[in-house]
Computed example of a mutant assay.
Amino acid sequence: MFLGSYEPKLDEKGRVILPAKFREELSSGLVLTRGQEHCIYVFSAREFESMSDKIRQAPVTSKQARDYMRVFLSGASAETPDKQHRVTIPATLRAYAGLDRDLTVIGTGSRVEIWDATAWQTYLAEQEAAFADTAEEVIPGLF
């Protein structure tokens, strides 16, 4: 399970060093793809395969499902970390997420997200008030 927030740097070759706590689960391979809110989703190869299986079960007659599948899968890139635990983020994904040198990498349970550090701070500031004000059951059975 991926948890926590980290602040690595993007190097001049578009690589990021994976946080130590994420390395074991991602060491045998991972998939980077477009995430929602202009971040990059990072899945272990196993989790991405499971997610792909679920996506393929969506009816081909659903325009919303087709649109989601196209955006999600067309941006996907299978990668393997190098010996220094670095992963290259393809230029198209860096541009999509607006990545600069300063990054925030967060664990969200089954996946990792890579954000431009400024974009993450803006997003978090916007969401914290709503998080604190949540008065009803947003996640069934949680509260």
Rank of each mutant, 00 (worst) to 15 (best):
M1E: 01
F2H: 05
L3W: 04
S5D: 13
P8N: 05
P8Y: 05
P8K: 01
P8W: 00
L10P: 09
L10G: 04
L10N: 11
L10T: 00
D11F: 02
E12Y: 03
E12D: 07
K13I: 05
K13H: 07
K13F: 05
R15G: 08
V16Q: 03
V16L: 02
I17D: 08
P19L: 11
P19G: 13
A20K: 10
K21R: 12
K21F: 01
K21P: 11
R23L: 02
E25V: 00
E25T: 13
E25Y: 14
L26A: 02
L26P: 06
G29E: 11
G29S: 12
L30Y: 00
L30I: 04
L30K: 09
V31Y: 03
L32I: 02
L32Y: 03
L32C: 09
R34G: 01
R34A: 00
G35H: 08
Q36I: 13
E37V: 02
E37N: 11
Y41I: 03
V42K: 08
S44V: 04
S44Q: 02
S44I: 05
A45T: 13
E47W: 10
E47P: 01
E49C: 03
E49H: 06
S50W: 12
M51H: 12
M51T: 15
M51P: 04
M51W: 14
S52C: 02
S52K: 11
K54H: 07
K54N: 03
R56G: 15
R56T: 12
A58S: 14
A58R: 13
T61H: 03
S62H: 12
S62L: 06
K63A: 15
K63S: 15
A65C: 11
A65Q: 04
A65K: 02
Y68Q: 07
M69I: 11
M69R: 15
R70Q: 05
V71A: 12
V71D: 04
F72H: 06
L73T: 09
L73S: 02
L73V: 02
S77E: 09
A78L: 12
A78H: 10
E79L: 14
E79V: 14
T80A: 12
T80G: 14
D82Q: 06
H85D: 15
V87Q: 00
V87F: 04
I89E: 03
P90F: 05
T92Q: 14
R94W: 05
G98F: 01
L99P: 08
L99F: 07
D100Y: 10
R101N: 10
D102M: 12
L103Y: 01
G107D: 06
G107V: 05
T108C: 11
R111Y: 01
V112Y: 13
E113V: 05
E113S: 10
W115I: 01
W115F: 06
D116I: 08
D116V: 10
D116P: 04
A117H: 00
A117K: 09
W120S: 07
L124R: 15
L124T: 14
E126V: 09
E126H: 09
Q127H: 10
Q127F: 10
E128K: 15
E128F: 14
A129F: 07
A130E: 15
A130R: 14
A132F: 00
A132D: 06
D133N: 14
T134A: 08
E136R: 14
E137R: 11
E137Q: 07
P140N: 04
G141P: 05
